[in-house]
Amino acid sequence: MRSVAEIVFAAGVPHAPAIVGLFDKATPEQQKVVRDTYASLSAELRKAKPDLIIVFANDHMTNSRVLAYPDFLIGMAAEHRGPHEWFKPWIGCRDYAVKGSPAAAEALFRGMTRRDVRMFGSRAPLNFDDNVSVPSVLLDLDKLGVPLVPVLQNCTVPPIPDQHRCYEIGRKLGDLVRNDLPAGQRVALIGSGGLSHEPGGARYMFIDEAFDRWFIELCVEADHERMLKELTIERMEAAGSGGTAELLSWVVVMGAIGERRGHSYGYAICSDFRCGIGAVSWKLAA
């Protein structure tokens, strides 16, 4: 057993509800990208043999009022169920229940507090929309038997933590995994969100393909100085206001693992998805 905990899997994944509920509207080629992407990620996740999964994902104002909105909300419950009742017909996915880890959630909260990061926690079960539900059902996390700690992130209620802040929080998360979690623990990190989309906006059906392909390449290249310089809030807003900034959850993961080359699983653009679809996993040291 290794003397410290380690990150054994790291990926950024899309959670657009339509890749479940409107999957049949896509062409066979588009469906293949979605299916193959999630099948590959599921296989890699299982091969990594994690014993804890931490998912960072946009909260989408599903748990908190605008007047009291946390930037990071840790799910500390012993079990996580979804999707929340109102989102079921909209997402169209099956119900799921994934066991939680109150102990790991407390370690995360405690460790972030000691690293001067203000997070919030909820011992009561959180509401999940597509943010956690789509990766949970497409990766079959409920069948994996590995505890999950969700961290719901503010990616849409201004002011939001920008790329520099999210990367710094990710860097502290990596330090926390290595120094605070039990020796030998194997941690999977998933950033859930994106790619370009503008939920509820005048450009609801707009997908910025050029941005999406640029961002995927940025994730693959592992030049984080460039990423932090170029992946600004303004650039993400231009690619889809209120939605594209979900990619900040991927930035947290990149901060935790440092500069690692990524692997892209392709890209699908389907107007019915109302969101560019792509995923990246990062190669970690053996």
């Binding site: 509800p17 339509a18 509920g21 409107l22 509207k25 989408h60 104002m61 605008v66 109102w86 017909p89 909209w90 997402i91 169209g92 849409t156 209620v157 503008e198 939920p199 509820g200 906006g201 609801y204 206001s241 209120g242 939605g243």
Partner: peptide, 21 residues
Amino acid sequence: HPYLGGQLSRFIYGNDAGGGA
């Protein structure tokens, strides 16, 4: 907020993926 505006429209017009939404 546009995200909540989108949800308001679904309360009014419908919320199922392939129909009302």
